[in-house]
Design a protein around this nucleic acid. Structure first.
Lengths: 171, 171
DNA sequence: ACTGACTATCTGAACGTTGAGATAAGTAAA
DNA sequence: TTTACTTATCTCAACGTTCAGATAGTCAGT
């Protein structure tokens, strides 16, 4: 037994107030609640980390997407919004800010003039490469209590959930 | 083998672009990435559900907290902010909106006049009880692909992560 | 009582996202 | 080529959150 967390208390409170609710459903709510709380801890840490570089997570998300999949030609705004799962307005905003900082640049696609290609500038590449490892190690601290096997288990369960949502490929 | 999800592609992309990064670290980044994407799917569904009742998730979060732990006297604003893991400004805003809708009411604490007690109104209680089960079943659809054992595994892993963050009790 | 430190909540500016709608460019069929 | 539809992106108002600072009440020590 590892002990109890805050969500175990929430489970008990619901069970007391609404005892007719199936405990399996309370377990479901607990799982979602735990992901929510975990996300808040992670977000807070990442926020302060990226702030040191004048970025927020949303901007880094774009830089990282371009770094790992942009090649030299960059990717379209549509690819970015599907990868980040945000609306087009959000991507316009992110790219605007990164452009103002000189980290990415926009150009009209040659094949489709509706389409915008976004590409890392040399400074953009330099910045991602500078902060990437620190970012990952930051995240690693949150999973540090899991051993290799448990981490694989977690990834397996989450993968199963994502596939059930049809999340089988990026935009 | 269950197949691959979008994050498996991201893993491959990073491994190709930055092959020197330890694959265990890529697994860490994948786990966090999966939680992020899953949260986006869940958020989108919940948003449209609560919108039908003129609420958003942040408001429901307050109502639910009061319903399961507020008793008849309600709870303090401080309790709400720690439970929701948001800043005091966010709670002020949420309570303002819920008050305007007649779902909660504020009163000054008798023991500590700095403290504000927030309590569900009868309409507030009615609304939570009306929408709670639909909300939980909504969440249950996201975990439906997991069997009882897997769901327990997931809760166990997430609990372990939360406890490591010191998340052992609500405010 | 008085001082200083701390705690609980509110205020307001800055900011990122959503959602609806606008613009403009591709596309398919008549 | 004209019409109708679809796609890619941008615009902008509404909104919720954070962050920093303001208020005001509490508490311990003097």
């Amino acid at each position: 037994m590892t002990g109890r967390d805050a969500i175990d208390d929430v489970w008990d409170q619901w069970h007391r107030e609404r005892p007719e609710i199936d405990t399996a459903l309370l377990d479901v709510m607990s799982a979602v609640g735990r992901m929510n709380r975990l996300r808040r801890y992670i977000d807070q840490t990442l926020r302060t980390y990226f702030a040191r570089y004048g970025l927020d997570f949303s901007e880094f998300d774009v830089l990282a997407t371009l770094r790992r999949s942009g090649g030299v030609e960059g990717v379209s705004a549509g690819t970015l919004l599907r990868s980040a799962m945000v609306t087009s307005g959000a991507i316009t905003n992110r790219v605007d800010k990164l452009t103002a900082k000189g980290l990415v640049e926009r150009s009209v696609s040659t094949e489709d003039r509706r389409s915008v290609r976004v590409r890392l500038t040399p400074e953009g590449i330099r910045l991602v490469d500078d902060i990437l490892l620190g970012h990952i190690e930051n995240e690693a601290r949150f999973l540090a209590v899991l051993d290799d096997n448990e981490r694989a288990q977690l990834n397996g369960l989450l993968r199963k959930l994502l596939i059930a949502q049809g999340d089988t490929h990026l935009g």
